[in-house]
Structures are given as structure tokens and as C-alpha cells.
């Protein structure tokens, strides 16, 4: 028996961080050949650039409203995309950076479309995290690297490993429980610093980072002691990177078990 799929489809694509530089040929093709393209990007120059690629592009920007829960906004974005998919159209959602990283709406839209029997998938791209490794010269494999959304790390007792890198996203919004604001201030960031001070000395050097989005723009790379995070200018696009503060601790028990296995293997040959 042949199962027929409904005609509508959805692809969520990642256009990267820097205008012109990071978009892949495949992502560009999806944007150019879809019947309708929804744009979820962080700056108007990039939006203008993408609008040139398809005659039916629609910005998701108007859904953002001060005082409206961000989750409500994201649900409206999903609904707008799904409405066109259900109408049988070939739909593309183009999002900046990597559309599956710190982005709720693309994942939810794909999940919902698939649940209704439509074809739906995601195309990866270059994220701010990728730019961070390049610009700061960090290899996450060297000591390990934890990533947390700053507010989530404050709301829950996470297990931070100070012998690896810690990357905190959305620090400009740290501690916001309302989901209706687009920045929090020094008092909220003081709470964040107090949380971090459980694992790091206050004079430990941290880095404020922001990826470049235009060809000649330089990334923001600012080194400062942890204690000065409270008064620093930090906006939503800024990320805080905390380098390791302690050496990795050896685990002699596990090493001994592994050595015993090695010996067992050698003896059996």
C-alpha cells in the first residue's frame, strides 16, 4: 500500500552569523526555490539581503512585542509557518546562526509538521558558538566545555565543572523570569556573579564575546575579572566565556580499572 504525503513541506535553514559569508549553497537553494520564506534574523541588513533571494519573503519580526511572553511569540511564529505548510505550500524558515541552536520555534515547527504527516527537516549552519571557537582560539575538546543559557543556570542547581570552559548565553537577560523583558540590569547580574562565585574566585578572568555580523566588523572580545561582570555593558548578543579555573582532577580508581582491562587484554594474546 502506498502512503501518500500531503503536498506541503517545511525546511528550516541556517544562514549563519555573517552576512554573505556563512550561508551554504544548499541553504541558499532552499531559500531561492521555496514558495514562501519566513525570516527570523537578528539584524535588518541580513534581512534585506535574504529578501533579495525570494519574491515571497515574510519577516517574523512583527511577532515580537514588548510585554508579550517570548514563548507566545515563538508559538505565533510556528503557527505562521505551519499555516502555509497546511495550505500545501513549500515553506522555508530561514534563521540566523544555526537554526537549531538556542532556537525553539524551528524545532517545534519541524516536530509539528512531521506530526501532521508533512515532510520537514533542518539544514545546519555556522552558529555564534562556532565563531567563538575561531575568534577566541578555544578548542572545546582540550578541557571540555559546558554551555548554559544564563537564566537557566540561575534557576536550577547545575553542576559546573570549573576545570573546563563554561560558556553562558544570553547574559544580558540573566535572571529574567517574566520572559517579557529584553534586558535585565546590574542587580540581576550580581545574582549571576554570586552563583558563579560558588565555583570561581571573583578575580578569575572572564571574556565577553560577540561575533562579527558584517564583513569588516571585528568581534567583541573583552577580558575582565568575574566581579566586574556586574557593571559591564552586556547586551543580548553578548556571550560570557569563563576559562578553566582549576586543573582537571585525575581519577585513579577508574585509571586502575582501565589498566587492569589493558593487562587482561595483553595476557589473552
Amino acid at each position: 500500500m502506498t502512503v501518500t504525503q500531503p503536498p506541503g513541506s517545511l525546511v528550516c535553514v541556517s544562514v549563519g552569523v555573517m552576512l554573505g559569508s556563512h550561508i551554504s549553497p544548499l541553504v541558499r537553494s532552499h531559500i531561492e526555490t521555496s514558495e514562501v520564506v519566513f525570516l527570523g534574523v537578528a539584524d535588518s541588513l541580513m534581512e534585506q539581503w535574504l529578501m533579495r533571494m525570494n519574491p515571497d519573503t515574510r519577516s517574523l519580526q512583527p511577532f515580537y512585542r514588548e510585554g508579550t511572553s517570548r514563548m507566545q511569540t515563538y508559538r505565533q511564529m510556528v503557527h505562521a509557518m505551519l499555516r502555509e505548510v497546511r495550505a500545501g505550500r513549500k515553506v522555508c524558515g530561514a534563521f540566523y546562526g544555526h537554526c537549531g541552536v538556542f532556537a525553539w520555534a524551528p524545532h517545534k515547527a519541524i516536530e509539528t509538521a512531521r506530526g501532521e504527516g508533512f515532510r520537514a527537516h533542518m539544514e545546519p549552519g555556522i552558529s555564534a558558538e562556532d565563531c567563538l571557537y575561531a575568534d577566541l582560539g578555544i578548542d572545546p575538546g582540550k578541557y571540555g566545555c559546558q554551555h548554559f543559557e544564563a537564566s537557566q543556570m540561575m534557576f536550577y542547581r547545575r553542576r559546573i565543572d570549573p576545570s573546563g570552559y563554561l560558556v553562558l548565553w544570553q547574559v544580558g537577560l540573566a535572571g529574567d523570569q517574566t520572559l517579557k523583558r529584553f534586558s535585565t540590569g546590574a542587580a540581576y547580574r550580581q545574582v549571576l556573579v554570586d552563583v558563579l562565585a560558588r565555583d570561581y574566585p571573583l578575580d578569575h578572568e572572564v571574556i565577553i564575546y560577540r561575533a562579527a555580523t558584517l564583513p569588516l566588523q571585528r568581534p567583541r572580545i573583552e577580558h575582565l575579572p568575574l566581579s566586574q561582570l556586574v557593571r559591564a555593558t552586556i547586551e543580548v548578543p553578548d556571550t560570557v566565556v569563563i576559562p578553566p579555573a582549576t586543573p582537571m582532577q585525575a581519577d585513579p580508581e577508574i585509571r586502575a580499572r582501565l589498566a587492569a582491562l589493558d593487562q587482561e587484554m595483553a595476557d589473552s594474546i
Binding site: A42, D43, S69, M71, Y74, H79, A105, P106, Q177, F182
Partner: peptide, 29 residues
């Protein structure tokens, strides 16, 4: 220069419990 308005680009999820407690079809326009 180009007469463009600055944009908001936040896409991050909110609190975990708010993510799943509502069907996406219930609240949109």
C-alpha cells in the same frame, strides 16, 4: 543610511515548564 529599523532576534526557549504546557495551536492568532 538605508532607512532600516533595528531588529529583535531572540529565539531562545524560555522556562522549561512554559515550553510544553500549551499546545502551539492554542495561543497564536
Amino acid at each position: 543610511f538605508l532607512g532600516l529599523s533595528p531588529l529583535c532576534g531572540m529565539l531562545e526557549p524560555g522556562k522549561e515548564d512554559e515550553q510544553e504546557d500549551q499546545d502551539p495551536e492554542e495561543s497564536p492568532p
